[in-house]
Every structure is written in structure tokens, then in C-alpha cells.
């Protein structure tokens, strides 16, 4: 499964351009479940378990990743770019992007030529530009059109003692866990939604939940780990290596209290390492799933990710495995 995470991360699927990710996932799950693609591009799967479910459980993970969209091409062949999803200002300048084989540098004014005051602030994306090496607008237009998507040009790989580092771990790690569950034997029937456009306002998950109409939704995500140099206590939000994070509230969802308690209890009972997310911050597909149709009891199991929404996010492998274990345990416990 850890190898699968790397493989899925190395496929580019910026919000609205998830098709390559979806196709690869379909090739992995075909034959292990019933599946269909809904009108928005969500991949909806039904997996038979050993027993029929008393409660309809839907797992969800999003296929899209943050990235960039071409908004225009200037007279000299430089691209103007817009951010797709929330990308830190410090994660723009100097980065190489890709669209297939085409590479693009996010360029900005040269350090030596910038006034001292301006060296203290990050340039906004509006003041930066995409450089594909084109010598003219005409040459650029042969390779790029407004609306084209670019992803970070980086390979996701093993890192440090027991981690992965790269782009799109948010949320291909969740996708890989779901693929792994679908390809294995489950105790109960389960539904899985690989969603689109989470990063641009949780757009895909609501309609997916509307179609599936689950009793319980389990969102498999990653969330901020701010447990870095100089950060202490609750400010760390989650801590890498302390297990999968369970949320009671974030900026998009007040999670169902009973389900929250059941998830924590299930983790304890099964000896699965978990932590409670220590900040009311961020949001994920739960935000639209819990209010889909007549409402869905929802929980989120998140892998603590440092440097999320940059090209070099990291996750701890043990936390990933804890998330996988808890997801399966919750399927049984929810019945």
C-alpha cells in the first residue's frame, strides 16, 4: 500500500483534472467491486463484504490535488497562473511545475535586483509568471492554452527514517487506503467514494453522498501536523508518529459526537494508535457529506501531514497504517 501511495502521488490530478488518477484507480479496483463514475467525475464503488451491512457505510477520499491553472499568456510567451486550491505564498516562487512532459518554472524578479524591503515579503502569484522557455506568445500557444492545469514537478518518495515526502499525499494516501480495502476481503459490505474537487470547495463529495445515501460516512484524509521545530502543545494540531487523527470539529464540520466517541473507543479496543486533532481548523469532504440529502453522520480519520499544500509534504508510514487499520475497524464497529 505504501508503494501504491507513491505511485498515485506521482500521477497528476489537479482539481478538475482528476481523470488520470481516476483511470489508474479504476484499473486497480476493477474486478474487486462494482463501480461507476457519476456526473461530476466521482468514482463510486460498492464492495461486497462477508456479511451484508446493517448500516450503510461510505468511505471517502479525494482524488484531486492543489496546483495551478493557466489564466493567460503574455506578449513574450510568459504564462499567468492562478492557484487551484489553497497554496502557501512561500510555495510558489522558484518551483518547477509540469503538464505532461512540459515543464514550467514559476519565475519572479531576481533577488539581486529587488529592493531590500521587497526581499522581506513573498511575491503574490499575480506578480510571478510561468516560464516554459517559449520565445514568443505564438510559441507558447502551441503548447499551452488558458485553462490548462499544471502540477508540482516532484517525485513522491521515501523520506527520513519512516516517512514519505512529496506532493498530493493529501489525499492520495486516503485513496490508496481505499484501494487497498477494496482489493482485500472486508467483513461487511461497504461503499467507497473517490471524489473530485475537494480542494476547490468540497465540490464532489456532496453529490457523491447524495447518490450513495450512507448512514455513516468515514472520510479518509490528511490534516495539518504543525509539530515542527519550535512548535509546542496544542499548536502542533497533530503530531506525526502519534497515530491517526480523529476530528471533533473543524471549520467545515461539527462531527457527530456519538460516532466520534465510537471511533475513539474502537481504536482503543483494537490497540490502534490514534490522537484527537487539537485545533478547530481546516476542513475536508466531511463538510459537504454531513449535510448531503437528509444529513449523514460523519467522521474523519486523518493522517498527520507536515507542510501540507506544498510540493514537499510529509507523512509518517506508521500513521498511514494506523489510518488503514482504524478505517476497517470502524466499518465493523458501526454496524
Amino acid at each position: 500500500m505504501l508503494e501504491l501511495i507513491k505511485e498515485l502521488c506521482n500521477i497528476d490530478g489537479v482539481s478538475g483534472g482528476e481523470a488520470p488518477v481516476r483511470e489508474r484507480i479504476i484499473s486497480l479496483i476493477d474486478g474487486f467491486c462494482e463501480w461507476s463514475v457519476d456526473p461530476l467525475g466521482n468514482l463510486l464503488c460498492f464492495k461486497k463484504g462477508r456479511k451484508p451491512a446493517n448500516k450503510k457505510v461510505m468511505f471517502a477520499a479525494h482524488m484531486d490535488e492543489v496546483g495551478f491553472i493557466v489564466t493567460g499568456i503574455d506578449g513574450e510567451g510568459f504564462l499567468k497562473l492562478g492557484a487551484v486550491g489553497g497554496i502557501l505564498e512561500s510555495a510558489l516562487h522558484g518551483r518547477v511545475l509540469r503538464k505532461g512532459d512540459l515543464k514550467c518554472v514559476i519565475g519572479g524578479k531576481t533577488w539581486h535586483l529587488v529592493r531590500n524591503d521587497d526581499k522581506k515579503e513573498y511575491a503574490k502569484l499575480d506578480d510571478l509568471y510561468g516560464d516554459i522557455g517559449a520565445k514568443s506568445k505564438e510559441e507558447a500557444e502551441k503548447h499551452v492554452s488558458p485553462g490548462d492545469l499544471f502540477a508540482f514537478d516532484v517525485e513522491t518518495a521515501d523520506f527520513g527514517a519512516n516517512s514519505l515526502c512529496g506532493k498530493a499525499l493529501d489525499d492520495r494516501a486516503g485513496c490508496a487506503i481505499m484501494v487497498d480495502m477494496i482489493r482485500s476481503e472486508l467483513e461487511y459490505d461497504a461503499h467507497f467514494a473517490f471524489t473530485v474537487c475537494e480542494e476547490v470547495g468540497l465540490r464532489g463529495a456532496g453529490p457523491a453522498a447524495f447518490s450513495v445515501r450512507p448512514d455513516v460516512a468515514v472520510v479518509l484524509e490528511s490534516t495539518t501536523a504543525a509539530d515542527i521545530c519550535g512548535s509546542e502543545g496544542g499548536k502542533r494540531v497533530t503530531v506525526q508518529g502519534d497515530g491517526v487523527a480523529v476530528s471533533f470539529a473543524d471549520r467545515a464540520t461539527l462531527y457527530d459526537r456519538e460516532l466520534f466517541a465510537l471511533v475513539c473507543e474502537t481504536a482503543e479496543k483494537n490497540g490502534i494508535k490514534f490522537q484527537v486533532k487539537s485545533a478547530i481548523a481546516g476542513g475536508n469532504d466531511s463538510g459537504s457529506i454531513h449535510r448531503a440529502a437528509a444529513g449523514v453522520k460523519t467522521t474523519a480519520l486523518s493522517i498527520p501531514a507536515r507542510y501540507i499544500h506544498t510540493s514537499q509534504s510529509t507523512v509518517n508510514k506508521a500513521d498511514v497504517l494506523a489510518s488503514r487499520a482504524l478505517a476497517e475497524a470502524v466499518l465493523s464497529a458501526a454496524q
Binding site: G86, L88, A91, C165, I228, G282, Y307, I308
Partner: peptide, 8 residues
């Protein structure tokens, strides 16, 4: 890997 905190 450079340490960065999320904006919030």
C-alpha cells in the same frame, strides 16, 4: 525539507 506552517 523546509519547515513551513500553514497560514492559520
Amino acid at each position: 525539507v523546509p519547515c513551513v506552517l500553514p497560514p492559520h
